[in-house]
Simulated assay, not measured.
Amino acid sequence: MDALKLPSLDTGRLCQEFGLSSAVLEDPEQRIPYATVDALLERAVELSGADHLGLLMAQLPVVDPDDVGSAVIATSPTLFESLERGVRYQRVWGDGERLSLEKTERGVRMRYTPVGPWRPAHRHLAELVMAQLVTGACLLTERNVVPLGIRFVHAEPADTRMHRERYGCPLFFQAPANDIEFSHEDAALPLVHADALVHAIFERQLQRALSALPTEEGLSARVRHYLQRSLGGGDCSIAAAARALRLPARTLQRRLAAEGQSYAGLLEALRRERAADFLQRRVSIAEVSFLLGYSDPSVFHRAFKRWWGVSPETFRQRHAHTR
């Protein structure tokens, strides 16, 4: 809750509106539905007028001395290994939003994916996460680490002066995903608090915390896996998914709703993500339409224009330089 302590925001009123006590929000063991968090952030923007809420929230310390996960990250040998630990143990912090790490030709890329179809709160969450990664990299290495670039799914805000000051690197908006890329040299930087023994002690605690969590994936993740296998030739209907998951279709819909998701939303989010990725890899537009399960390319064109605000051809031209 400290992250929302802004001069222009009455946090007591905000909590009251959502039926949440400050004790619940300040308890690190409490888990709040992502849909509630999203709605709370969007309401906070309305009440405070803070258009750059994510960047303001990022002014808090990125390392929590009372958090075992922070200790594991801070005592890792290198920046890359600290990022890898963050991905490995992310379920300890939350069950929905996801970070992934991959090597690129120029270095390493960390990708952030919020929960569910895009909504305004996701802009602030993505900007918060990217600011924390930049600040954390500089703090833990005691070097001026400048990312190769940061990409955001959302449209470019009217005023980006605070963004450019905070990130200090090339920024791209309306990109296929929220991600940040570090060079090979920066990824290999040693952390100033690296300590093998301390790291091993805290990591064992984190491993125990992770093993205590339920091992079964949420239903939305299982649906997404099904859709990943079925796009481009399979049956993407909810009836087919329900049969594959051995659930009645109504039960599938009800359980997804309990996770703050919908079948149509998961399918559209995956198609949107895949479409952007395929176009950047120079796959033909007709083939992209087929690979996403559209029988009529014109339907794909209309959907893509709705997702990104431009045609597939224009999108490809705009983002040819971001890979």
Rank of each mutant, 00 (worst) to 15 (best):
M162I: 12
R91K: 13
R281F: 05
L231F: 05
R274H: 08
P77G: 09
E26S: 14
Q90E: 13
R282S: 13
G49T: 05
Y89W: 14
V24Y: 02
V63I: 15
G19V: 03
G54Q: 10
T141F: 07
L133M: 15
V134G: 02
G54D: 12
A158L: 12
W307F: 09
T314G: 00
I73W: 09
A3N: 02
R323L: 15
N144W: 04
P297H: 02
E42D: 14
L206T: 10
E142D: 12
A303V: 03
H154L: 05
G309M: 03
G49D: 02
L213G: 04
L245W: 06
S48A: 05
G232C: 01
A126K: 10
F278K: 00
F290K: 11
G309C: 00
G136I: 09
D10A: 04
E287F: 02
L245H: 07
D51V: 13
L267N: 00
R204G: 12
E84S: 14
H163F: 11
A71W: 14
A74N: 08
L60T: 14
E259R: 00
S289Y: 03
S76A: 15
V68D: 14
L56P: 06
Q205I: 06
I32T: 03
H225D: 15
L14N: 03
H122D: 15
V283E: 08
V87N: 08
H301T: 07
V198L: 15
G69N: 11
L245T: 01
P28W: 02
G233D: 04
R166S: 06
A44C: 01
S8E: 06
A126C: 08
L266Q: 02
A242H: 04
V310Y: 03
A276T: 07
P147V: 11
E105H: 14
V283K: 01
Y34Q: 15
S237D: 04
H193C: 10
E142A: 12
V115T: 11
M57P: 08
R254C: 00
T78K: 12
D67P: 07
P7A: 10
R254A: 10
Q174L: 10
E26V: 00
T75K: 09
L14S: 04
M57E: 09
G12R: 08
D277F: 13
S311C: 06
A257T: 04
H163V: 08
L267E: 07
Q90K: 11
G96W: 14
K103I: 05
L227P: 01
R316F: 01
V288T: 11
A221I: 09
V72P: 11
S21V: 00
P28D: 00
D186C: 06
R318P: 01
G265R: 05
A212R: 11
L101P: 07
C236A: 09
V92I: 12
P157K: 11
L206H: 10
G116N: 10
L279M: 04
Q132M: 10
Q59L: 14
S220I: 03
G96H: 14
E259I: 05
D27F: 03
V129R: 15
A257I: 02
